[in-house]
Write a protein that binds this DNA or RNA. Structure first.
Length: 283
DNA sequence: AAACAGGCCTAAA
DNA sequence: TTTAGGCCTGTT
C-alpha cells in the first residue's frame, strides 16, 4: 500500500481485497451509509469518515494522522485476506462463498461499541438494529461536525451507566434495554474490565463476556470477533445453522477453518443472504 | 393475522 | 445437559 495526500484526503493505493459495500453491509457493523455517489460515510467510535473508491485506490477524507493512528487499523489493512480465502475454501460451497465474499474485511471496531451493538442485535433485523443504534447515539452520544454535517459518537459505557429503562424508552429496543444498562453498569463501574478480555484466549474471552446479562454465546462470539479481532471466533446464528445443515459437509466443525473461522462465517453469512437467494428461499 | 427477526433467560425434565 | 416458552417491537 502506498499513501499520499491530496486536498485534505488520504489516498491509499494498492489495497486489494477491500470492497466497501460488502465490508459495510455484511452485518459486522451498523453505522455506515452509502451516499448517492457510491461513497460511504460512517461513524466508528467517536470519528466519522467518508471513503470513496477511485479506480484502484481509496480516498479517505481524513487527516493523514487520523489515517495512520486509526483508520488504517480499522480497515485491517495489514491482513492478507487472499491467503485467508485460500485457507477457508475447504469445500465447493466454501470456495463459492469466499469467492463471492472477496473484498470483505473484518473491521477492528471499538470493544464497547461492538459488544453493545450485538446485544441490541439479538432476535432483531438489521434495519431495526441500525435504527436503534442511531437513536442511541443521537440521544446519548457526543455531537460533532464532519464535512458540514452533524454526527453522534457511540455513547460510552460510562455515559449509559446509571440511566433508567425509561431513559431508553425512545429507542424502542424492548427487553434489550435492560441488557444494555446492565452491561454499561458493569463496565463503567470497573466490575467488568473489557481490556482484561484481551489477555484471554478466544474461548475464555467468550465465556467471560457471557457473565454479562443478556450476553449469550452468539453475542459474545460477535463481540470478540468484531471488537477484539479474534478471527477464530465463529458466531453461529440462524443463517449459519441453515448453511451448516444444508451446504457444509456433514463432518464439518469450525476447526475446519483453522484460525479463520470468523472470516469464513462472514463469507457464509454474506453468501447465503445475498448470493443464494433462490436456494435460501426454497430451503 | 400470525410469524418471524443474526438470542437470551428461566424453569422443568 | 437439553428443551420449551416468554420476551419488546416492527415488518411482512
Amino acid at each position: 500500500m502506498t499513501v499520499t495526500e491530496e486536498k485534505g484526503a488520504v489516498i491509499a493505493a494498492g489495497i486489494d481485497e477491500l470492497d466497501l459495500e460488502k465490508t459495510f453491509e455484511c452485518g459486522q457493523c451498523f453505522r455506515w451509509v452509502r451516499n448517492l455517489d457510491g461513497s460511504f460515510t460512517g461513524v466508528a467510535g467517536s470519528r466519522a469518515l467518508r471513503i470513496v473508491k477511485n479506480d484502484g485506490s481509496f480516498n479517505l477524507h481524513c487527516s493523514r494522522e487520523d489515517f495512520e493512528s486509526y483508520w488504517k487499523a480499522y480497515f485491517d489493512i495489514e491482513t492478507d485476506y487472499g491467503a485467508i480465502r485460500d485457507k477457508v475454501g475447504v469445500c465447493e460451497f466454501m470456495k463459492r462463498a469466499s469467492e463471492f465474499g472477496q473484498g470483505i474485511r473484518i473491521l477492528r471496531q471499538d470493544r464497547w461499541e461492538a459488544l453493545c451493538s450485538f446485544i441490541i442485535s439479538q432476535c432483531n433485523n438489521i434495519k431495526r438494529i441500525k435504527g436503534i443504534i442511531e437513536s442511541l447515539a443521537m440521544l446519548f452520544g457526543e455531537e460533532f461536525s464532519y464535512e458540514g454535517r452533524n454526527f453522534y459518537s457511540f455513547p460510552t459505557a460510562h455515559r449509559l451507566a446509571g440511566l433508567s429503562i425509561e431513559d431508553l424508552e425512545p429507542l424502542r429496543c424492548g427487553y434489550r434495554a435492560k441488557y444494555i444498562l446492565s452491561a454499561a453498569d458493569s463496565v463503567a463501574s470497573g466490575r467488568f474490565d473489557l481490556d482484561e478480555i484481551d489477555r484471554l484466549d478466544t474461548d475464555a474471552a467468550i465465556k467471560k463476556l457471557m457473565e454479562l446479562e443478556g450476553v449469550g454465546v452468539k453475542v459474545a462470539s460477535c463481540a470478540v470477533l468484531f471488537g477484539y479481532h479474534r478471527l477464530d471466533a465463529f458466531p453461529v446464528d440462524v443463517w449459519m445453522k441453515r448453511a451448516i445443515t444444508n451446504y457444509l459437509p456433514s463432518d464439518f466443525t469450525k476447526e475446519s477453518f483453522g484460525s479463520y473461522a470468523g472470516v469464513a462465517q462472514q463469507y457464509i453469512f454474506h453468501y447465503t443472504r445475498n448470493g443464494l437467494q433462490d436456494a435460501v428461499n426454497t430451503a
